[in-house]
């Protein structure tokens, strides 16, 4: 630098940005949500630990509702297409989203999976579209996928303090489905009351359905909750055609 007047010195300027790190995902999610509303599709983002019973819950849902409502699903997994294969066997048109190393689904992955093709048509014409997220109680919680509701499957075998350990996930939940309740008699120190107490400390509007995919406990309450979400979506005003951008549609 010049030691007479300081010219040539770089100057430091402060630039305010104030942007959410999730803004790109949120933009994509808003677009998906507008599509779902336009098509009258109720999208449910189903999250939970690996082994919490997400796929079994959807298989049981197909048995309970498959005759009455049109269902569709995508299943996120790091590897294999096992979950989507199970759902297809249960009669739910479904597609896998193999994430490789990603521990969560984001809105772009869901958009890519449901754009066009057989699954795209199945999703567009469905009443309930389940997005079975990657088994993980951490990362999926913060990604909006355009869903009408977030559901967390929590199994009784996970113990009573998962809500306190993973508050971000349960904060985002509209409903917790407490799965595998047929196993409660075998679990010492696990009670529904203790789990409900933990939920009340992290979930602003706690809503819990006790369910067993094996003996059918709670399936009626779950079906009723899903129908209520579907009715909300059906009653919601349809958005104006949501495209301010130029992607191609395979309609």
């Amino acid at each position: 630098m010049c030691d007479v007047c300081g010219c040539g010195d770089p100057k430091v300027v402060s630039v305010d940005v104030h942007a959410s790190l999730l803004s790109a995902n949120d933009h994509e999610a808003a677009h998906l949500r507008a599509h779902f509303l336009e098509d009258g599709v109720t999208a449910i983002n189903l999250m939970g630990s690996p082994g919490s019973g997400k796929t079994a819950l959807l298989e049981a849902t197909a048995r309970a509702l498959g005759g009455r409502l049109r269902l569709a699903a995508v299943s996120g997994d790091l590897a294999t297409t096992h979950d989507a294969d199970r759902l297809a066997l249960a009669g739910i048109p479904s597609a896998p989203i193999t994430t490789g190393t990603a521990c969560h689904l984001d809105a772009a992955m869901v958009a890519g999976a449901v754009h066009g093709g057989v699954i795209g048509e199945a999703v567009r014409t469905s009443d309930l579209f389940f997005i079975e997220n990657v088994g993980n109680l951490v990362c999926p919680a913060i990604y909006d996928l355009g869903q009408a509701a977030n559901v967390v499957a929590l199994s009784v075998t996970e113990g009573i303090d998962k809500p306190l350990k993973y508050p971000v996930m349960f904060k985002a939940a509209d409903l917790v489905v407490l799965t595998k309740v047929d196993l409660l008699p075998h679990l010492r120190g696990v009670s529904v009351g203790a789990i409900a107490d933990a939920l009340s400390r992290v979930m602003p509007t706690p809503r819990l359905i006790e369910l067993s995919a094996v003996d059918g406990t709670g399936l009626a309450a779950w079906a009723e909750w899903l129908m209520a979400r579907r009715d909300e979506v059906r009653r919601a005003p349809r958005p104006a055609h949501p495209h301010s951008h130029g992607h191609e549609h395979q309609r």
């Binding site: 770089p10 430091v12 300027v13 402060s14 305010d16 940005v17 104030h18 959410s20 790190l21 913060i142």
Partner: peptide, 10 residues
Amino acid sequence: LFLDRLELEV
């Protein structure tokens, strides 16, 4: 989660 501000050397 926010990017609040940047300090730039110009």
